[in-house]
Amino acid sequence: MEHLIERSLFASRWLMAPMYVGLSLSLLLLLWVFGLEFWHLLQILPVMKVNDAVLGVLALIDLSLAANLLLIVIFSGYENFVSRMNLSEHEDRPEWQGEVDFSGLKLKLVASIVAISGIHLLKVFMDVGKYAPDQIRWMVVIHLVFVVSGVLLAAMDWISNHGKGLKKRAPKA
């Protein structure tokens, strides 16, 4: 009975696979929005001002960072929780694939969120007249919370890894 329960629990990881397929399909949504944003930029090209160009490009960068974040979650999540991808021979396989553990995934996620938040904040600063001072203040506070969270998460991982290293080196009694 115990063996059957353990095998069932282990097999339940495959319930995550459809979620990763759904996330990969959501890349199409980001691609669609990217295309719309790019099309909008092309339409205003004859009358485009510097701020319009910078804001438009920042929006495109924002979308590409979100897509990169999505790929990191899909690849790392699938490999950490469902199954290894047997693509080690593929010439286009990213170097980090298969090497990002759950701790590394969390740090990459936080770093991406901080980058996306920073770009969004830069867009706000480029068009500061559209926003109330209170709104801007909250956006800065939220961004700083992301930054501090990332630093604290990295510090916790460092402490955890440092503690494991000390435990391995400690003499056995």
Rank of each mutant, 00 (worst) to 15 (best):
H3W: 09
H3M: 15
H3Q: 10
L4F: 07
L4M: 09
L4R: 14
E6K: 11
R7Q: 13
S8I: 11
S8Q: 12
S8C: 10
L9N: 09
L9T: 08
L9P: 00
S12H: 04
R13Q: 06
W14K: 13
L15G: 13
L15S: 11
A17R: 01
A17K: 00
P18I: 08
M19L: 07
Y20Q: 02
V21S: 01
G22L: 09
L23P: 00
S26D: 00
S26M: 03
L28P: 00
L31S: 12
G35F: 04
L36Y: 02
H40M: 06
H40R: 11
L41S: 14
L42W: 06
Q43H: 10
Q43Y: 04
I44N: 03
L45D: 14
P46F: 09
V47Q: 12
V47D: 12
V50W: 08
N51P: 01
D52A: 11
V54D: 02
V54M: 04
V54F: 03
G56S: 02
G56K: 02
A59G: 02
A59N: 04
I61K: 09
L63W: 00
L65W: 01
A67Y: 00
N68F: 10
L69V: 00
L70S: 04
L71R: 14
S76A: 13
G77N: 03
E79M: 14
E79T: 13
F81Y: 06
V82S: 07
V82C: 05
S83N: 15
N86S: 14
S88H: 11
H90P: 00
H90S: 13
E91Q: 14
P94M: 09
E95W: 12
W96C: 10
Q97H: 14
F102Q: 15
F102N: 14
S103P: 05
L105T: 07
L107G: 09
L107N: 15
L107I: 15
L107R: 14
K108W: 08
L109I: 04
L109G: 04
V114T: 08
A115D: 03
A115K: 08
I116L: 03
G118Q: 05
H120L: 08
L121W: 01
L121V: 07
M126T: 12
D127W: 01
V128H: 06
V128Y: 05
G129M: 03
G129R: 07
K130L: 06
A132K: 02
A132M: 01
P133N: 09
P133F: 06
R137D: 03
M139D: 04
M139G: 04
V140D: 01
V141D: 05
I142K: 11
I142R: 08
I142D: 02
L144E: 07
V147W: 04
V148S: 07
S149N: 08
G150D: 05
L152N: 08
A155Y: 10
A155T: 12
I159W: 07
I159D: 13
S160G: 13
N161A: 13
N161D: 13
H162K: 11
H162V: 13
G163F: 01
K167D: 12
K167P: 05
K168W: 04
K168F: 06
P171C: 13
A173R: 12
